[in-house]
Amino acid sequence: MKALVAVKRVVDANVKVRVKPDNSGVDLTNVKMSINPFCEIAVEEAVRLKEKGTVSEIVVVSIGPKEAQEQIRSSMALGADRGILVEADENQLGALEIAKILKGVVEAEQPQLILLGKQAIDDDSNQVGQMLGALLGAGQGTFASEVKVEGDKVQVTREIDGGLQTVELALPAIITTDLRLNEPRYAALPNIMKARKKPLDTKSPADYGVNLATKLKTVKVEAPAERKAGVQVKSVDELVEKLKNEAKVI
């Protein structure tokens, strides 16, 4: 069966971002960009399913600026077979618009498994997979920590607040990955070279009949309130004394 994996280009997880002085957003000039960590896990899971013989072809799709090609190439170096870049202005894209474009891609490609990360570490929305499920009328296995394909069904173990929950979904189904699903491999140099030759199509939102312009407007972006500097205590006695008499929390 065919698997479709959606990946997002985001600021690297280890970068401490800075808010622009005019409060219009976060300053991303000259900041290291990477594939969103949850998306990388989705790619890895698809590759593992291919290695098991469950999946025959992996198509990776990214929606965003031209530079997102790099993240598609990285996914191909991990084992995806081909790529689709839907070039669009990120400022006009909300989760709903992205889900609508992905719906178009799914209808064109007809995958049985659709894998996404559970959230992007820039907007922290945690919406796209669920919205895509709704638009396709497909089942959703969100926050997946285990995926088992059995015939025309998939069993997904999900991380929920109290522990774990297992659901069974009819295929085609949407799966969004949690951190514990797997540990992504590193791309080997020969695979990075091979990935350069794999096919990559460029599309536009209009190709899927999607009208952009999200109805959510970011009015401003601010730095969070700073915590005031703390003090180093030298002994347990001093700590207990401070917690009791200064902070009054115990």
Binding site: V17, V26, D122, D124, K217, V221
Partner: peptide
């Protein structure tokens, strides 16, 4: 947003 490193004010139309 950004793991709590920025606070966005968002308006829904």
């Amino acid at each position: 947003i950004y793991a709590g490193n920025a606070i966005a004010t968002v308006q829904s139309d």
